[in-house]
Amino acid sequence: MNKKINSFLVVSLLLLVVIIYSAITGSIKMDTMEFIRALFGEENSNYTVIKDLRFPRIIVALFAGASLSISGVLLQAVMRNPLADAGVIGISAGASFVQLLIITLFPMMFFFTPLLAFFGGAFACFLVFMLSWKSGLNPLKIILVGIAINAMFTGLTEAFVTLCSYMNVMVGGVGGSNLSMRTWSDVRLISFYGLIGLLAALLIASWCNLLALQDKTAKSLGFNVTRARLFIAAIAVLLAAISTATAGVIAFVGLLVPHISRRLVGSDHKWLIPFSALAGALLILTADTLGRILVAPLEIPASTIMAIIGGPFLIFLIRKDK
């Protein structure tokens, strides 16, 4: 118990430090005390600029990291697969493709983009399940099928963008994989849908624990395994779609964070889900902040940093599982 509480305290403290550091570091700088005084009402022109330019980016990064991490936790519980991640198995790519279609063809439906992107992610998830079912949802088979689904939707996205450029159609509003230029409208979008998904995930934590049991054992306790799997998978897809619609496709977050979190707080999802949310928020915000300052004034997208970290981590997990 002490280890769990200490882990929560350390991650929460680190998250607060990174939030402040991310806010005061960049082309416009403030010292910490000056920032805190401005935060509590002191007039400061630099703070006004930071509030409009950096705060939305920080908040979107926090929600995206939390959403992707919990999505990974839920997918791993549903599939009983430690390698499941929305970015790796194509769910994020499916959501991104539908998002592109909606924003390009029906820009007036911007606020409903995450909800509509959900159907793209759900279709990708359905394809992974269907094509992996005969192998008994073998972990490696799911990854291979997922990579193929991911490639298919990525190709469709690139083909659509190319076609639009030939037809002189403006492709706008798509988040890409860079968190720059996020606005308060993006914050409202991800916070509205994100809070719904995060609260739903917390409420079904006990279901995730029951899915760790053998299906026969869970059914003998009166637990509807099929219904629970479908509902948990839907929440996981919704969280991935929310993140994709506002922050772009960022892979490996739902792979890295749950594994590290289990080592710190164990496998009880009542602890694992909230801790993964904090750790995922910390990871994405740290990656985005590093991307801003490492080669300033140029930027390295958070998705690129996560790919550099996550690729070797996935290889390590596959070799360990073997």
Rank of each mutant, 00 (worst) to 15 (best):
K134P: 02
I103S: 04
A86T: 14
L198W: 00
L221Y: 11
T154N: 09
L39A: 08
K219Y: 01
V18N: 02
A23R: 08
T48I: 05
R188W: 15
D268S: 14
N6W: 12
T25F: 01
S267C: 11
W184V: 08
D186E: 13
P114R: 10
L203C: 12
T226A: 11
R262V: 02
I24R: 01
T113D: 11
A234C: 07
N46Y: 02
A234P: 03
L131P: 00
V78M: 04
A287K: 09
L298T: 08
I59M: 01
E299D: 02
A233H: 04
F313N: 01
L105C: 15
I149A: 11
A23S: 15
K322A: 02
A159C: 05
A201K: 07
I89Y: 02
F40V: 13
V171G: 01
L290C: 12
M170I: 14
A218Q: 07
L264Y: 14
M152V: 07
L221R: 13
L39Y: 10
F129E: 05
G222N: 06
I24H: 01
V257Y: 11
S132W: 02
G120T: 07
F313L: 07
C208Q: 04
G197C: 13
M109I: 12
L127E: 00
S191F: 06
V249G: 02
I5K: 15
K4E: 11
G26T: 13
P114M: 15
M79E: 01
R227F: 10
V249E: 03
A64I: 05
